[in-house]
Design a protein around this nucleic acid. Structure first.
Lengths: 233, 233
DNA sequence: AGAGTCAGCTGCTCTAACCAACTGAGCTAG
DNA sequence: CTAGCTCAGTTGGTTAGAGCAGCTGACTCT
């Protein structure tokens, strides 16, 4: 019955409550006191269950206000991937490279599926993003946000929100670990711009092979810089 | 300082402790009492932090024995994806279909990268798995385990453990939701076998286009069955 | 020497009290 | 009459102490 303990039991019950009542993201949950009475357990146990659910993004707690159904985003996955990568890194594994290779494998795989099928609106946005990238490059370095936005806009054409979120999660985790740990040589802004421009044009032309090559080049560039990095700490 | 609260603060400190001491998976952590004294907080706060870390798979708690560094597997991601999908489903979203499309997009993207590059040992294992599948099909239905093993063995050739774990996580989440929620018509075992055989042969022959087509067919089959499903509850 | 027992660790749950953040109704000043 | 302030009430956050429950290993009895 309570084979995994009381707190774990309560987690399941709260999840069930959300499902049974068809509660959408942002809907209010019962107060801690209500949950105590509802499940017949102490406040402490309720709180431990809520903390665990909060860590999974299933629940959102606002001090002095109440508890709500969480956004169910990929944020916890980012946290987990980030920590896993950082911990692995400090134990001497090439975990950051592995994470980059994950992104490379998935994105090069998806780009062919996308060639020639990007909506005009997204193409326009990608044009604007590459332009902004070139402006920033002239000023010294490309902002990380811009790169993120490019990749996000690119795969938006696949028309799968879940997939987009997963890709963004991978990007976020990689970027967070990279900025935390690595003293990589500053990427050559011009090369970065040229490669993004090439990806865009390849996708626009509908040439799947060329697009795949372009993405592979882009990641190859990042990988080379990463390999030659001096690690912080 | 403690902008996100004490418990959140302690989570970070415990994570830092794991990183700083280079603790590998399975290494023992200080006891709750030790952590109380170490951080100067109450038992309760320590426990809430540990529960959250446990939910993320960073920590593993064994009653009466101690607390240990967790396996850092993708298990929490599976949990999160599963719940997200189930909750979305009950709110009338096509979340399960979306999850299947995520798998389809990623796997069809990766298969081209794999064609003609699967190690002989893996090909032999895949042969054995399809054979087992055919035996099971003769007995009525293909076991889910066998399908899982096939997909796992297939992408093992990409030689990226992280990628393999992510793909298996997607498989697990999909399968869990499917068996929980859906009364889908039993897949025709023979069709399933033939499609897996075709994927294997396409990959063996090194024909990337054919392999991609084979995977797309396979997922198309699953998708069709899913669309015609009667949902449980 | 082997099997059973128990002391001691460990984490688990409960109770009770007080602290801190936020909301909203009501009061006050303009 | 309205804009702004204040304060009471609600909700989550934290602490403290007590006892329960599961596991291990050494000790004891056969």
């Amino acid at each position: 019955m309570h084979s995994r303990g009381m707190a774990s039991d309560i987690q399941e019950r709260i999840k069930k409550l959300i499902v049974d009542r068809r509660l959408p993201s942002g809907a209010p949950l019962p107060t801690e006191t209500d949950l105590m009475e509802l499940f017949g357990v102490s406040r402490n146990s309720v709180r431990e269950a809520l903390k665990a659910l909060q860590a999974m993004g299933i629940v959102e707690i606002r001090h002095g206000f109440g508890t709500y159904v969480g956004p169910m985003s990929m944020a916890p996955m980012i946290e987990g991937l980030t920590f896993r990568t950082v911990a692995g890194h400090y134990r001497g594994e090439d975990s950051l490279l592995q994470l980059l290779e994950l992104r490379e494998a998935v994105e090069t795989g998806l780009i062919a599926r996308l060639a020639g099928r990007v909506p005009a609106a997204d193409l326009a946005e990608l044009d604007a993003l590459v332009s902004r990238m070139e402006e920033e490059a002239a000023g010294g370095a490309v902002r990380a946000d811009t790169d993120r936005a490019f990749h996000a806009a690119l795969y938006r054409g696949l028309d799968n929100l879940l997939l987009s979120e997963v890709l963004e999660a991978f990007w976020d985790a990689f970027h967070r670990v990279r900025t935390d740990l690595v003293e990589a040589p500053q990427p050559d802004p011009e090369t970065t711009c040229r490669q993004h421009r090439e990806i865009l044009e390849a996708v626009r032309s509908g040439d799947a092979t060329r697009a795949e090559e372009a993405v592979r080049d882009h990641f190859g560039n990042i990988r080379t810089r990463l390999r030659s990095a001096r690690y912080a700490r």
